[in-house]
């Protein structure tokens, strides 16, 4: 039982990062109908921004993280103005192709700036671990889970109670009706993409404490896709639950079957859930008046 619990705890630590990234992915999709294939690359960008701030500017981790998130917000704003805004209203295929192109461009630019060699974060977070009821909890995992939980809670409060959050939700529900009610759709799109980029970057900053920083982090960031789909593409709590579920399934598969089984199991579970609930765990069936 302790072994099972250990796998679940390890899965929750990784899954909280997936959930954070999936949250940004869902937010962008919900607000703009853009299926952003570059979300994984924005995770990588966050990790590199943190590395750049620590390694090249000599900042401590917390300052580097804040700097990286601010730069990510500006990057999101830039992407909205230059890439996403002009493509609104285009066909789904066009938007998908543009985000794939964006993904390749981001990856190429990162390699040009930082080079292809692996980078590592300075060892600034506390090492070590504690054991509770036979389950080992590393301090890094606890910090990651804590930071992810606080970030998710802040975003939830923002969407539920702030005026901007309510306007964003209104745009997500029905952009035309919201615009008629006086909501500035373009401003909300900008905020959504900025927040989506910031959550991806935050995921990258956390992931970089578990992983070596390399362009391959974008592939790990892509696991946010099944997390978002599993939870429901329009559901913010669903993204978080989807991320945690994917993280736990991955660890249980790796522990009880094999490392290669993780992806198979994740997509098998995704398939089964979608067969039963096509809108995902938290997705609501859309009712259309005919």
């Amino acid at each position: 039982m302790a072994e099972f619990t250990q796998y679940v705890v390890s899965g929750l630590a990784v899954g909280s990062i997936y959930g954070l990234v999936a949250l940004g992915f869902v937010l962008i999709f919900k607000s703009t109908d853009i299926f952003n294939f570059a979300q994984g690359d924005l995770v990588m960008v966050g990790a590199y921004l943190g590395f750049g701030a620590m390694d090249r500017l000599g900042m401590p981790f917390w300052a580097a993280a804040i700097t990286a998130l601010l730069v990510a917000a500006l990057l999101g704003l830039g992407l909205q103005q230059v890439v996403f805004r002009p493509m609104l209203g285009n066909s789904l295929l066009t938007m998908v192709m543009i985000t794939i192109a964006l993904s390749l461009i981001i990856r190429g630019v990162v390699v040009i700036i930082f080079g292809p060699l692996d980078k590592t974060y300075p060892d600034q977070l506390p090492g070590g671990a504690m054991t509770v009821a036979g389950v080992t909890l590393s301090y890094v995992d606890l910090i990651i889970m804590g930071v992810a939980a606080v970030a998710i809670a802040c975003f939830t409060v923002f969407f539920q109670f702030s005026k901007t959050g309510l306007q964003m939700r209104a745009i997500g529900e029905n952009s035309e009706a919201a615009a008629v009610c006086g909501v500035n759709a373009n401003r909300m799109f900008s905020v959504a993409i900025m927040v989506g980029t910031v959550t991806a970057a935050a995921g990258g900053l956390l992931l970089a404490n578990l992983q070596i920083v390399s362009p391959q982090l974008s592939d790990i960031g892509l696991i946010a896709f099944p997390a978002a789909v599993l939870g429901g593409m329009h559901s913010i709590p669903g993204a978080v639950v989807g991320g945690l579920t994917i993280g736990v399934i991955g660890q249980l598969s790796a522990g009880y079957v094999d490392g290669t089984a993780a992806n198979v199991t994740i997509y098998l579970v995704l398939l089964l859930v979608l067969l039963i609930r096509p809108t995902g765990i938290f997705g609501a069936r859309e009712v259309v008046r005919v």
Binding site: Q6, Q251, A254, T260, A262
Partner: peptide, 20 residues
């Protein structure tokens, strides 16, 4: 004989298996 894929995020499960 255990596979740790290049896109693995942690090796917690692998090390637990090695320990057990």
């Amino acid at each position: 004989s255990i596979v740790l894929p290049p896109d693995a995020t942690t090796a917690d499960a692998v090390v637990q298996k090695l320990m057990s």
